[in-house]
Amino acid sequence: MKIFVEVEGKQHEIETTSELPLMEVMRDAGIPVLASCGGSCACATCHVYVDPAWVDRVPPKSPDEEATLDGAFGIEYNSRLSCQIAMAPELDGLKVILAPDAIG
């Protein structure tokens, strides 16, 4: 599957078959995601904005993710922690923007 990640206005296309969290897929592809807690939903530095067309198609937020988002900045309705979105075939084509506070 393909995913599209925008970092500081630049588009990146990632081809993957992984079912790991989006944060790890981005990191493995060389996207500079800070992710300082290593994916344990504790730091909020893997913050992404999910493309409006995809907001309802990614798995919903847990209360823990919502609470951890309190430590992020510029939160919008489509803000998510990318370490909490497991990749899956139905997310083929997913588009996200890496939030400024998640750029390492």
Partner: peptide, 8 residues
């Protein structure tokens, strides 16, 4: 006073 948690 911004209190958004700590980072390392």
């Amino acid at each position: 006073l911004p209190f958004y948690g700590l980072t390392m």
